[in-house]
């Protein structure tokens, strides 16, 4: 176990050092990408310049959903977002090297491409979340505090499962590139807004099919003390960990099937 941890730590360490070699570009990259997670919040503020409510929710309500969803997404993107690289590994045949090493293929892929520069984004998402919660003037109780901390973590589990499942598609469909984006970045886009504004088919697929209602909307309703305009029961707010666990089970099943399906390019 200690051996495994040391191996991963040195892989991540090497990645940190190599990315920091080109200092100016690296600094610019960290700085700039840290603003990326702010875009979603800026977009909400702009929307509310031209409309007083969205789906019956005020700017405060929507921002709680958006920032909560954003923390979950950025945490997942930071930890496992780079699993997307698997498409390149499959296409170039690099996957062979990964598979013959005595460590888990998924673990290696995540450690080898560990995206240090995405840390700025995560930090910024967290800052915005805390700031919005403080500004929103909520009625804090112990369960709500637990929910405020637990929901983004569970949301991150859900998003990371979707990242892994999406990357697995590359085993069957190498050029699938942007296909997974519809569910990862698309899921984040979906979760950032109150789900009652979406067309019904989108709600079926994303909110409940992929569980995106649980990364922002349902927990935020409980924090705000509002009933669901769509009529879902209140206890759904607490279901994010269950949804995350189910999603991970599905993602790992897919991943293992995918690995077995892998055929080397033979080069």
């Amino acid at each position: 176990m200690a051996d495994t941890i040391r191996a991963y730590r040195s892989l991540v360490g090497a990645q940190v050092r190599s990315q920091a070699q080109y200092r100016l570009s690296f600094a610019l990259d960290v700085l700039v990408t840290s603003f990326v997670s702010g875009i979603e919040v800026v977009a909400i503020l702009l929307l509310f310049r031209v409309t007083p409510t969205l789906g019956g929710f005020s700017v405060r309500d929507v921002l709680v959903m958006t920032t909560m969803c954003e923390v979950g997404f950025q945490l997942a993107d930071f930890l496992v977002g780079n699993v997307e690289a698997v498409a390149r590994y499959v296409r170039t045949g690099l996957m062979d090297t990964v598979l013959i090493r005595p460590r888990s293929a998924l673990g290696q892929l995540l450690a080898v491409d560990f995206p240090v520069r995405k840390f700025g984004r995560l930090l910024q998402a967290l800052t915005m979340y805390v700031a919005v919660l403080a500004w929103a003037d909520l009625d804090w109780t112990l369960p709500r505090a637990l929910l405020a901390v637990g929901a983004p973590v569970a949301g991150a589990a859900l998003y990371s499962a979707i990242f892994v499942a999406g990357a697995t598609v590359a085993f069957w469909w190498i050029d699938s590139g942007e296909f997974a984006n519809a569910f990862t970045y698309g899921g984040r886009q979906f979760g950032s807004y109150p789900i009652n504004v979406y067309a019904p088919w989108l709600r079926v697929v994303f909110a409940y099919g992929l569980g995106m209602a649980f990364t922002g909307y349902q927990p935020a309703l409980a924090l705000l003390g509002r009933p669901d305009p769509l009529g879902a029961p209140d206890w759904l707010a607490w279901c994010t960990p269950v949804v995350g666990a189910v999603a991970w089970a599905g993602a790992l099943l897919l991943w293992n099937t995918g690995i077995r399906h892998y055929r080397s390019t033979g080069s």
Binding site: Q21, L24, S25, F26, V32
Partner: peptide, 11 residues
């Protein structure tokens, strides 16, 4: 000048 353009591209 920079060789690595990830930063400018991100901007």
């Amino acid at each position: 000048w920079l060789l690595d353009v990830r930063g400018p591209v991100a901007l």
